[in-house]
């Protein structure tokens, strides 16, 4: 590049401008192909339906189940599972960027925070309320939920549970109050949100002091459960979700919420109204699958992904085939 042969100015001008313009033009046409992945409407077959989920094990599992079922019934799908956190995915479905994803009934309490909090503790009321509100506000259709309740819970080490006879939260309250050694690993959200730990404390009559807790700022239940299982820093209790796969494998027992303090979080597929209206058969395809998912089933399937490290799509497929939903 040390010398460039200069022809007359006119010649150079003639070459430079058209070349640059063409390059820029091609560029801006190509941009969206890169940007959006260039999806086109498919003439033949049904869809495409964009299926998403949050970045968690159960979300991936349920999302993959939805994909397999839709595909088996002649739909083309776009896999956007493990897409992003709740707020991103909500924006996405409201803006029509995605078509369907699994959401929890209890989350209705956040999306519509002017509702009476006790509604969400009732299985039926919660579901009906969120179904109604979502249809009215955003034209989102909630299909039938699974029976599993993936709600907030406290899990205790199996050895303490056995030795000290702690099976329910009532037992636990007694254990704490008579001075049993307690160290809970939980997230900031869990220990401070009024409907989480404080709600348990209030309902069952116990109170954990600051040095009976280890607070992780962005904690998720996999970390807290791991901490309890390994006894890290003396932790023997973990914040958990009901359907966490690790619980059985790590030797943790979920303390029963006999008084029903927590809202009910049942997963259900939710669909954009426009897509539902075009393909109402989606309901019939997915409902039977979700109805069969109870707490133990979900825990087992989650465990396969989280503990054994299997891939969500494979686990979903194997399950659906086993149950005869897929051939």
């Amino acid at each position: 590049m040390s010398t460039m042969s200069l022809r007359t100015k006119e010649e150079r001008m003639k070459k430079i401008f058209p070349v640059t313009s063409i390059v820029l033009f091609v560029f801006f046409c190509a941009l969206p192909v890169f940007a959006g992945g260039g999806k086109r409407e498919v003439e033949t077959g049904k869809g495409p339906v964009t299926v998403a989920s949050k970045i968690d094990t159960e979300g991936a599992l349920l999302g993959q189940m939805i994909i397999h079922m839709l595909q088996a019934n002649g739909f083309t799908t776009v896999d956007k599972t493990e897409f992003g956190p709740t707020d991103v995915i909500r924006k996405a479905i409201i803006n029509g960027e995605i078509d369907i994803y699994p959401e929890y009934t209890g989350n209705g309490g956040f999306f519509y925070d002017d509702t009476d909090p006790t509604i969400w503790k009732d299985l039926k009321k919660g579901y009906e309320t969120v179904k109604k509100l979502e249809k009215e506000t955003h034209d989102i259709v909630w299909l039938k939920p699974a029976s599993a309740n993936n709600t907030w819970a406290i899990a205790i080490r199996m050895d303490i549970s056995k030795s000290d006879g702690v099976k329910t939260l009532e037992d636990f309250a007694r254990y704490v109050n008579r001075g049993g050694r307690v160290k809970l690993a939980g997230s900031e959200e869990f220990v401070s949100r009024p409907d989480a730990l404080p709600a348990f404390e209030k309902a069952y009559g116990f109170k954990l002091s600051k040095d009976q807790m280890i607070i992780l700022s962005g904690g998720n239940t996999a970390q807290t459960e791991k901490a309890a299982a390994e006894g890290t820093d003396g932790v023997n209790l973990a914040m958990a979700y009901g359907t966490d796969g690790a619980l059985a494998a790590l030797g943790l027992w979920v303390l029963e919420d006999t008084k029903g303090v927590q809202p009910v979080y049942q997963p259900a597929p939710i669909v954009r109204g426009e897509v539902f209206n075009r393909y109402p058969e989606i309901e019939g395809i997915l409902n039977p699958v979700f109805q069969g998912l109870d707490l133990v089933t979900l825990q087992t399937l989650n465990a396969k992904i989280a503990i054994e490290g299997q891939d969500a799509a494979t686990v979903a497929k194997d399950y659906l085939e086993e149950k005869g939903f897929l051939k």
Binding site: P32, V33, F34, A35, G36, G37, G38, K39, K80, F83, G84, V88, K91, A92, N95, E97, I98
Partner: peptide
């Protein structure tokens, strides 16, 4: 053209 609110764009 594939320009969307989420994802790559």
């Amino acid at each position: 053209m594939g320009v969307k609110g989420i994802g790559s764009t």
